[in-house]
Design a protein around this nucleic acid. Structure first.
Length: 789
DNA sequence: TTTGCGCGGGTTTTT
DNA sequence: CCCGCGCAAA
């Protein structure tokens, strides 16, 4: 047990504890991941079969990283651990066991958009006004109920809830809940909450199944326990009832997901459910300077619901926290970007040492612009994820419908795409008929002549023939997911439609679709993929978390930007917490809806404790919103860390002047952006709120459902995108993954265009099929700044 | 059924 | 400011 040497006493205690329930209260930066890793390794060393260990993490990425670390300690055995998010692990189990509840293994997973869209249809069908019954509100209400394990019937029979809805003048919600549930079931679909809810139902009603998994999982560990909801907690409680080996790790001070049903009580009350609970507190922070630790402690000191603990550090005092006051959000962006630039130069830091954390995704705009101007590379985590882009959802919907013909939401999306002359009226008729007769939509579509659905049967028959042909291909065991997927993309006409769209947007859409196909190829080629069906790909994809949206292979030296929620579990040398303004952070909404500042404080606590060495905060005195400049007050949080604040307020930075460019800094003149695939940020970004506009295509990370190096495999593509049409020998190019290079040779083979490129960095010579390659730009098109000489 | 125009409302965080 | 919706016209 050589690894025990590096651990402090409570850490060792946690690692060595094997039998019986254990709660590890792990303060920020206290080495929680190490403890979990070593504890797992220790279990395996003591003879526990990895198949019997279930480790539930908050993101799939966290699971992957931890698996690697465990593998380092114990070797290949780590492969057999059950690890993942609650949603992904139990979705997997439901694929096997869903039959007990009437689902097939191919059930669809509805994302939030699908759920809301379905709710909207139901609301309209019931003749209710969707301005009063806002799908959003109804959905949240239903989601809340599910997370507390209140099913539709219990909902309708619960006088308190009913009275509540009546008081809110929304008495129909219970009915809607019931209908929604029925429709999802008919569609052979589960939403995110259902994955947990149904797991609970499964374990409640099918004791033989519960017993099977109780025997299977002898040791259960839950990371980020403070962010589990009742539904999740009950699953772990049931599963561990036989073995009594439940180990939870969490920090009540970092509970920031109450809005989605997480209950801090899980952690506060665990002792009641487990009288023989052993509690270990990890209170020493190894991450941050003392200044940062103390500031963080001050922020949550006034919170009422928390466990007693004292986070301390033996690290150096560190530099004072800095506060930057800007006139506007744009200036804020400039000041922060310049600050980063200066620190980088002064201390020889890399981009990855920096993170900018904000409360809402929409705030990223000003920082993007400013960083770009200083040629600092960045990446945005979160925001509009790749899989929520329209074109991606469209194609995925095709896949979903071919796999599961009951999937009503997928059906609605693709029935008239590309345009077949089937309008909303017809679609509504079909879905209503299906719902009334309690049959799947597909029944109606496939036998359209038997149903009175108007005169457009021809178009509908064309559609159903198309789906039938896809289905036949899907069921052919010789065809892998990639072949089926690319066939669907082509034959449906989706690819063609996007290819014909010559706008910048259209071309980027086309590339995204190619990118999706590419990732399916990688999924299929990946030797670690057990189940290579399209259905399995869909399941994987639906449960990706935002943090998984990362590109481990690419040029990774980038400043990270994300919401504070997204930053949980991460650490950075220098952290900027921006937009510290009243109503923004703490959020107006949060205070209105829950009238409680505590979670916002914890959020601030999380943000502060991400920093290792240096912490900078900023606020703007005015901010663009709906195109208008609005005055802002500094956040009350600045007062909450009062003693610190007074001290560092004296150190408020001078406004930073634009830096002078050192000699040798090359600026390459830009021209003609038109044929580039750059998302022309300057043009599309007004001064105001960016909303859900895609975050600058050129810097946003690529999707990596399944990541692997850019494919050298060359599938046939029918269309070559025109943005690389002018590429010729001798051109200098920048590729998203491989960096700069020179085009050595161009090959045209039918419609396929290949470029052989010699890259400057390491990778050497590569031949890339242009439709699958992504370039920032082509030399005669533009580069802003090439770099330092 | 599709398209174009005018109007109103929207902004939290995520599996 | 931008998106999505409802309504009217083609």
């Amino acid at each position: 047990m050589d690894y025990l040497a590096g651990l402090n006493e409570p850490q060792q205690q946690a690692v060595l504890h094997i039998e019986g329930p254990l709660m590890i209260i792990a303060g920020a930066g206290s080495g929680k991941t190490r403890v979990l890793t070593f504890r797992t390794a220790h279990l395996i060393e003591k003879g526990v079969d990895p198949f019997q260990i279930l480790l539930l993490t908050f993101t799939n990425k966290a699971a992957g990283e931890m698996r690697q670390r465990i593998e380092k300690a114990v070797g290949k055995d780590a492969k057999n651990l059950w690890m993942g998010t609650f949603h992904s692990v139990f979705a997997k189990i439901l694929r096997f066991e869903g039959k007990h509840l009437g689902y097939t293994p191919d059930f669809s997973i509805y994302d939030t958009d699908d759920s809301k869209s379905l709710l909207k249809s139901i609301i309209k069908e019931r003749g209710l006004d969707d301005k009063i019954y806002k799908p959003n509100v109804v959905f949240n209400r239903i989601s809340g109920a599910k997370n507390r394990l209140v099913g539709p019937d219990e909902y309708l029979n619960n006088p308190v809830i009913v009275a509540d809805d009546a008081a809110a003048k929304l008495p129909e919600i219970g009915r809607l809940y019931k209908l929604y549930t029925t429709r999802c079931f008919q569609a052979n679909a589960m939403d995110f909450d259902d994955l947990l809810f149904n797991t609970n139902v499964l374990f409640r009603d099918h004791l033989e199944v519960l017993d099977k998994y109780q025997r299977k999982f002898k040791h259960i560990m839950v990371d980020e326990f403070q962010d589990t909801n009742v539904s999740q907690y009950l699953i772990t409680k049931k599963l561990s009832a036989k073995s009594n080996n439940l180990c939870v790790v969490g920090d009540d001070a970092q509970s920031i997901y109450a809005f989605r049903g997480a209950s801090i009580d899980n952690i506060l009350n665990l002792e009641k459910d487990y009288p023989d609970l052993t509690t270990v507190k990890l209170e020493q922070n190894y991450r941050s300077t003392n200044t940062i630790v103390q500031a963080a402690n001050t922020v949550i000191a006034k919170n009422k619901s928390q466990l007693k603990k004292r986070v301390f550090t033996e690290n150096e005092e560190g530099s004072l926290i800095e506060l930057i006051k800007a006139v506007s959000d744009n200036e804020e962006g400039r000041l922060i970007a310049t600050h980063i630039f200066e620190s980088k130069m002064a201390k020889g830091l890399r981009n990855t040492d920096f993170a900018i954390l904000y409360r809402t995704n929409a705030q990223s705009r000003s920082f993007e612009e400013s960083l770009r101007k200083l040629n600092i590379k960045y990446r945005i985590i979160g925001g509009l994820s790749f899989y929520h882009r329209r074109e991606i959802k469209d194609l995925l919907s095709y896949f979903r419908f071919v796999v599961n013909q009951n999937d009503e939401e997928a059906f609605k999306r693709i029935i008239n795409l590309p345009k077949r002359g089937i309008g909303d009226t017809t679609v509504a008729k079909i879905t209503i008929t299906a719902a009334e007769q309690k049959i799947p939509v597909w029944e109606v579509v496939a036998n359209i002549r038997n149903y009175q659905v108007g005169r457009f049967s021809d178009a509908l028959e064309g559609f159903s023939d198309l789906i039938k042909s896809f289905k036949i291909m899907l069921e052919n065991p010789k065809k892998d997911a990639y072949e089926v997927a690319s066939h669907i993309a082509k034959s449906s006409g989706l690819l063609k439609e996007l290819h014909d769209d010559k706008t910048v947007e259209g071309m980027s859409r086309y590339e995204n679709v190619q990118e999706l196909l590419n990732s399916i190829k990688q999924f299929v080629d990946n030797p670690e993929t057990e189940d290579k069906t399209l259905s399995s790909f869909l399941q994987t994809v639906s449960l990706l978390t935002t943090a998984d949206d990362d590109d481990p292979e690419g040029d990774n030296d980038r400043v990270t930007m994300m919401t504070i929620h997204g930053a949980k579990g991460l650490e950075f040398n220098h952290v900027y917490i921006v937009g510290l303004e009243e109503d923004l952070f703490p959020s107006q909404m949060m205070l209105q809806s829950r009238a409680d500042l505590e979670e916002e404080r914890r959020l601030f606590y999380v943000a502060i404790t991400r920093a290792e060495k240096r912490l900078v905060m900023s606020y703007a005195e005015s901010r663009y919103q709906y195109g208008r400049l609005k005055p802002c007050e500094p956040s009350r949080f600045l007062d909450e860390i009062d003693p610190m604040f007074l001290e560092f307020a004296r150190n408020i930075r001078k406004a930073v002047e634009p830096i002078e460019r050192p000699a040798g800094f090359v600026r390459n003149i830009t021209s003609e952006l038109s044929s580039s695939n750059r998302a022309t940020p300057a043009a599309s970004l007004g001064n105001g709120y960016r909303g859900s506009t895609s975050p600058s295509a050129n810097v946003a990370p690529r999707p990596s459902a399944v990541s692997s190096p850019a494919s050298t495999h060359v599938p046939s593509a029918d269309f070559a995108p025109s943005n690389t049409a002018n590429l010729k020998e001798g051109d200098k190019v920048e590729h998203q993954k491989f960096g700069f290079g020179n085009v050595k040779k161009m090959d045209t083979n039918g419609t396929d265009r290949k470029a052989t490129i010699i890259f400057e960095k390491g990778v050497g010579e590569k031949t890339l099929l242009l439709s699958f390659a992504r370039f920032y730009g082509v030399s005669h098109v533009q580069f802003l700044l090439i770099g330092w000489l």
